[in-house]
């Protein structure tokens, strides 16, 4: 249960400002982590896909439309950090769509295991989408893309799902409290 409610007396506007700050701050943090590659987070040069974890966390309690929007925004951010061609928006938007459509009430308890499994599957999907984009793009040879995909998708999925709670837990906690304070839930 959530005991202290320091924001109880705050107006909805202040609350929304706080929420915006949390959203922007967490996305920036995720983007920063994406390029940092701290030694403990790296498996053979591959790090977790923090933005993917963020999109899953965001979409898990929201509609698929919100999920797609978040996916596109974060995909654009990732484009800005690497290269715009091929774009990352397709993969992340799909992640937002699918996570938003998951019937959480029936199939999935909101615990770390479910989140980790969702993130794992979504990471595989994002890499597959990227592989298809690279394969169709013509800059890479198909067999190279396939080889790289096989080497990388699994490590990316495992790392992302292992680190998912780091993003999921605080954000989910904040949003639960935020919605409760606003009287949405």
């Amino acid at each position: 249960m959530i005991k202290p409610l320091p924001f109880r007396k705050q107006s909805p506007l202040t609350l929304n400002l706080w929420n915006a700050a949390v959203v922007v701050g967490s996305v920036m943090l995720c983007a920063l982590m994406l390029i940092l590659r701290l030694p403990v987070m790296v498996l053979s040069g591959i790090g977790p896909n923090w933005l993917l974890v963020w999109v899953v966390t965001w979409s898990i309690k929201r509609t698929s439309v919100e999920g797609v929007l978040a996916g596109i925004c974060l995909g654009l951010i990732q484009d800005g950090l690497t290269a715009a061609q091929p774009t990352h928006t397709v993969g992340l938007a799909l992640v937002g769509l699918l996570t938003g459509r998951l019937n959480k009430k029936r199939f999935i308890q909101e615990d770390f295991i479910s989140i980790a499994l969702i993130v794992f599957a979504m990471a595989l999907m994002v890499e597959a989408v990227a592989a298809i984009q690279f394969g169709l793009g013509g800059t890479h040879r198909l067999e190279d893309v396939w080889l790289h995909f096989r080497q990388m998708a699994l490590s990316s999925g495992i790392l992302s799902s292992l680190w998912a709670p780091v993003v999921y837990f605080p954000l989910n906690r904040w949003w639960t409290r935020y919605h409760r304070l606003l009287g949405i839930e």
């Binding site: 390029i35 990732q78 950090l81 690279f134 790289h148």
Partner: peptide
């Protein structure tokens, strides 16, 4: 070096 590439497909440095 500030960072590495932000996905696993590109080989970049920041």
């Amino acid at each position: 070096i500030l960072g590495r590439s932000a996905d696993n497909w590109w080989q970049q440095l920041t």
